[in-house]
Design a protein around this nucleic acid. Structure first.
Lengths: 327, 327
DNA sequence: CGCGGGCCATACTAAAATGTAGGGCAACCA
DNA sequence: TGGTTGCCCTACATTTTAGTATGGCCCGCG
């Protein structure tokens, strides 16, 4: 009852699912509407069950169609990754590299490094996606990830770049108005800037240091960039990389001796992309640039397994607080 | 220079890559050889670079083609998963569920549980893949995984089923011939059965207990089933689940007081498959059956994040030995 | 209530892809 | 060395597929 359908039909199916109607999907795919109608009919025939119920305003997906959607999207992403791999396979100068990074990294640290990358490989097309959530590489959403924590997946090639130090800062005007806390215990009396719902950044930073709790914060945002902007605007006390804060004269360190935070910086790529010259070149330049930025010697190219051992040792040295730790 | 190619071309490309020639690929796909020749030519045109060099004995892939292969395979697996999802979306009685498990689990524990599953859902088509390597679910190589360690991926729905105890055993004839070790320190004097190159099983079992080293073993195999068979054949001392050893009267426990090993049992499925009735039904029955086998109450259905917290607590209670721990 | 705009389905025509058949080439084997 | 086999390429007939044009339907709006 289920012949395996032509992949083109799946692509059309996904387009119809997204667009909500045959006509709209046809416009996006630059095909004719009857063509898509036939594709859907053929796919329904192959699968032996209806995928859409014909409604006046368009097509309504059946539960089966909704269940199929993630797989169709996985195919689409794999196809996009294949295209990138094909472009840059031979020639590092001619390819597209998609990089994902955390917000702060992508906005504050990466641009000059990417400029250097582009200078060395002018033919490269660069894509930069900023998300604090991980898991992009495995979905082939990106070729290279700059992450502030150890990549967990076996299928990744990961390199530990170094360590970045953070501390608490506040605008000097804020401190002039409210004074400065004299101890960590006094912090709840001030306007602490922190996450809203997504604690992934905070828990990585605070690992083994502070018990992190949403109720501590009196100014909340899940965007690290927004947090930084709020900090610079004088709304309260928040965390920032020392390296970045040093270039912002209006910021003054707070509890510098008591609160010392740190993050690891990791570079990761999918092992499938090992054969892609463009990705390899970008990986190298990013490693160099980030290493220089961190002012630390970078470790040798190492596979995930070795990286794991390193992290393990590190984790034993600094046992964390159960409440703040979920990763 | 790079139009995004029709997905059918990618499928043909993968077939040619695997088969090594247009003709062979054509036979497998039940297409004519010139058709595949045209597909490859079209794909090369779309990508703007050659994928194969024409050789007398067939086609030799270029580096670019090799770099593209993993992505093409990812598409293929996603398509297969899509097909399974379509089949079983509505009706648990009519669907295919692909299960991956470790060798011992799949060969010794799962069969009766799968029999029960089939009894309850006679229309289900079951696929069972035995591999000790993980990472199958994310590649959509399987719908459900039975694993002896905590699944690490965020995109998975995981349920901790329970705990299985292991110990060292030997055939009574072996012990009659060689005697029994009186302490762990004496073990190297005996024929210990263990892994050859792949230490993934052993390091999970021995976590926090024994320093595991390949040189300890005097009988080596990477197949857990082979190890069990060697153990039953009297070749030496090896690890086995208490539950299984209890049904093998020829086996005698060794150093039962000194060496107590254990593994967690986890059930995991891809969150994308949540909408698949067949997979859900299989997940439920597997959870019940494994829970009954382990003789323990199963915990409530929980997402990965909660599972992580559980594991963290556990890891703190039993700190491991750095050398034996890489996961 | 009539009109326009969105949608899908159908019939027909045009284009494109597929299959078939035959030729040439290199490698292997008796 | 001569036959056989497997391979790829090209040319041509055929089937399949896509595009165009049209009609009917439902909804919202003036």
């Amino acid at each position: 009852m289920a012949r395996d359908p032509d992949w083109t039909l799946i692509r059309s199916f996904l387009a119809v699912l997204r667009a909500g109607s045959l006509s709209a999907a046809a416009r996006r795919l630059r095909l004719a509407q009857p063509t898509l109608g036939r594709h859907i009919a053929a796919l329904e025939g192959d699968l032996g069950q209806p995928l859409f119920t014909r409604a006046p305003a368009g097509l309504a997906p059946t539960p089966a169609a909704l269940a199929m959607r993630p797989m169709a999207e996985a195919m689409e992403q794999a196809a996009a990754a294949l295209l990138r791999a094909a472009e840059g396979a031979d020639d590092p100068a001619r390819g597209t590299v998609r990089i994902t990074a955390s917000e702060v990294m992508g906005a504050q640290v990466l641009p000059p490094i990417l400029a250097e990358l582009q200078r060395r490989h002018p033919g490269l097309v660069l894509e930069l996606a900023l998300e604090n959530r991980a898991g992009d590489l495995l979905r082939r959403d990106a070729d290279i990830a700059v992450r502030m924590f150890r990549p967990k997946q076996d299928a990744l090639l990961a390199r530990r770049i170094g360590h970045v130090g953070l501390g608490l800062y506040a605008h000097r005007d804020y401190l002039a108005r409210h004074g400065a806390p004299r101890s960590v215990a006094e912090l709840p009396l001030f306007h602490v800037i922190g996450f809203d719902r997504d604690d992934s950044s905070a828990r990585a930073v605070a690992e083994g240091t502070l018990p992190i709790d949403r109720t501590l914060f009196r100014v909340r945002s899940d965007s690290d960039l927004a947090q930084a902007a709020l900090l610079r605007a004088g709304l309260g006390i928040g965390a920032m990389q020392h390296r970045l804060a040093a270039e912002m004269p209006e910021l003054v360190p707070v509890l510098a001796a008591e609160v010392q935070l740190g993050l690891e910086v990791w570079l990761a790529m999918h092992e499938d992309q090992r054969g892609n010259a463009a990705v390899r070149a970008a990986f190298e330049v990013l490693g160099e640039g980030l290493g220089a930025f961190l002012g630390q010697k970078e470790s040798a190219f190492s596979e995930e397994k070795e990286a794991k051992r390193l992290l393990f040792v590190r984790a034993r040295r600094a046992p964390g607080l159960p409440g703040a730790l979920k990763s």
